[in-house]
Measured scan of single mutants.
Amino acid sequence: TFTSYQLEELEKVFQKTHYPDVYAREQLAMRTDLTEARVQVWFQNRRA
């Protein structure tokens, strides 16, 4: 599960791009204290 802060950050990036590159995902992962893999999976699920 994600915190409301994490979801907010993820959604913010999703609004800009549905396909963030690895750099964007790593920045987001650091900001949200998630792994890059978790961020990647979240985007895959969000796009589905």
Rank of each mutant, 00 (worst) to 15 (best):
E36C: 07
E26D: 06
N45R: 13
D21Q: 03
R25S: 04
N45L: 10
Q6A: 05
E9F: 05
A24I: 12
L10W: 01
S4I: 12
Q15A: 12
V22R: 15
E36H: 07
R25K: 05
T17L: 05
N45S: 10
Y19V: 04
E26K: 14
F14M: 01
M30F: 10
L7D: 04
E36D: 08
R38G: 08
Y23D: 10
R47Y: 03
L34D: 01
V39A: 01
W42L: 01
R38T: 15
Q15S: 13
W42N: 00
K16L: 12
L7M: 07
L10N: 00
R25I: 15
E11H: 03
E11R: 03
E36K: 06
H18F: 09
Y5P: 04
A37N: 08
F2Y: 12
Q44H: 09
D21Y: 02
Q44D: 10
V22G: 08
K12S: 07
F43Q: 00
K16I: 14
R46M: 06
Q15T: 07
Q6M: 04
T1F: 11
E36I: 11
R38F: 12
T32Y: 04
A29C: 11
W42M: 13
E9D: 02
F43N: 00
A37V: 08
T32W: 14
F2D: 02
L28I: 07
Q27H: 07
K16N: 09
K12T: 06
S4T: 12
F2M: 10
F2S: 15
T32A: 08
Q6V: 05
T32Q: 02
V13H: 06
R46H: 04
W42G: 00
E9R: 03
V39P: 01
D21G: 08
E8M: 13
Y19P: 15
W42K: 00
F14H: 01
A37L: 15
P20W: 02
Q44T: 08
K12P: 01
Y19G: 01
K12N: 06
K16A: 11
V13Y: 09
Q15C: 07
R47G: 03
M30P: 00
P20I: 05
Q6P: 01
E11I: 13
R31T: 10
D21W: 02
S4F: 09
M30K: 13
Q27V: 09
V13R: 02
V22P: 11
R31D: 05
Q27E: 14
R47M: 04
A24Y: 06
Y5M: 08
D33F: 09
T17A: 05
E8I: 10
N45P: 00
Q6T: 03
L7Q: 07
T3I: 06
E8V: 08
R47P: 02
E11A: 04
L28Q: 00
Y23S: 11
L28V: 07
F14N: 15
N45F: 09
T32G: 02
A37I: 11
Q40T: 09
V13S: 07
Y5L: 09
K16M: 14
Q40G: 09
Q27I: 09
P20E: 01
T1V: 11
V41W: 15
Y19T: 05
F43M: 04
A37H: 11
V22S: 12
R46S: 03
A48T: 08
H18C: 11
F43A: 00
E8L: 11
E8S: 10
N45V: 10
D21E: 15
L7A: 14
A48Q: 11
Q44Y: 11
